[in-house]
């Protein structure tokens, strides 16, 4: 390959520098872009752990990403100017040592993060028994609404039956003959909870798979028909937040929006009373 190529008009070194610059820009630009704060404002207790996990990954991975692109750029810039190859082959020992060292380093970063930061959050989120004063809410998803039910003062949900379901009159299929259901409080697309108290959301779905996503609370759980997964978390900030569907559920998936209001405990009791009164 000593003869000049018909297409190679520019100097190879210049072109190599240009390509090297491309990849270095990708690395530096990527980190500069990604270093901004992106996540929605945090409003839950366990969410701090999830954010810590994400930040840990953003920092470590960001560093590796930058280093990788800088090395790539350097090799291109350096190699583009060579007339002869440098080292032909590294020894098998070098190859092995480099591979093992980097592989183990990556394993440490990846699994270390899971074990040291991720698992405790995961265990707390799924494993902790909710305290007795937790607010229990049943959320039944359907195309395309969130049916919300509070058990009322008796703490018990009334019976429901899919055979009684009617979108207009009885979306939850409540069995009116069950006394436990008499004081149930029902809302649509609106959940109100008190700040600082544990919230237990029992998820159901009537039709297809939906996903209960509260971006500010770092909560996401699929609502799968035939299953009743439970989500337990503690809101830490008062305000009006949004509930989104995160699993493709049909035509209006993109606007299956709910409101998630976190209020002070007295306001919450007041709200619940008012809801019960209007229902009766």
């Amino acid at each position: 390959m000593n003869k000049p190529e018909p297409n190679a008009r520019r100097s190879p070194a210049f072109e190599a520098a240009l390509v090297a610059l491309l990849f270095v820009t990708a690395g530096v630009g990527g980190v500069a872009y990604g270093a901004r704060s992106w996540m929605p404002e945090l409003a839950s207790r366990h969410g701090a752990g999830i954010d810590a996990m994400l930040h840990y990954l953003l920092v470590t991975v960001g560093a590796l990403f930058l280093a990788g692109h800088l090395v790539l750029g350097y090799f291109i810039w350096r190699g583009g100017g060579r007339r002869q190859i440098g080292l032909r082959m590294a020894s098998h020992k070098t190859e092995l040592v480099l591979s093992i060292a980097l592989g183990l380093g990556m394993l440490l970063i990846a699994e270390g993060g899971v074990i040291a930061i991720g698992m405790p959050v995961w265990t707390e989120y799924f494993g902790a028994t909710p305290p007795s004063d937790a607010v229990t809410i049943e959320v039944t998803a359907q195309q395309f609404a969130w049916n919300v039910r509070y058990p009322g003062p008796d703490g018990k949900f009334g019976r429901t039956d899919p055979r009684l379901m009617d979108d207009a009159l009885n979306p939850l299929g409540r069995d009116r003959s069950d006394p436990a259901g008499a004081d149930d409080v029902i809302t649509t697309n609106e959940i109100t909870v008190p700040v600082g108290r544990t919230v237990r959301v029992q998820l159901r779905s009537k039709d297809v798979i939906h996903s209960f996503f509260l971006p500010n609370f770092r909560v996401k759980q699929d609502a799968v028909p035939g299953m009743t997964p439970e989500v337990v978390f503690v809101p830490t900030r008062e305000g009006e937040f949004e509930l989104a569907c995160a699993q493709l559920c049909g035509l209006a998936h993109y606007r299956m929006r709910g409101f998630f209001n976190v209020v002070s405990p007295p306001q919450f009791d007041e709200w619940l009373r008012k809801q019960a009164a209007t229902a009766n």
């Binding site: 090395v71 090799f75 190699g79 440098g86 190859e95 592989g103 183990l104 990556m106």
Partner: peptide, 25 residues
């Protein structure tokens, strides 16, 4: 996440293949 091990090694070896090379772009 154990997949990161072979994949990291694979990627790094591709990168290392450039070192000392006479690059023809």
């Amino acid at each position: 996440l154990t997949i990161t091990v072979p994949m990291t090694i694979f990627g790094v070896n591709m990168l290392a293949s450039l070192s000392g090379g006479r690059l023809l772009l």
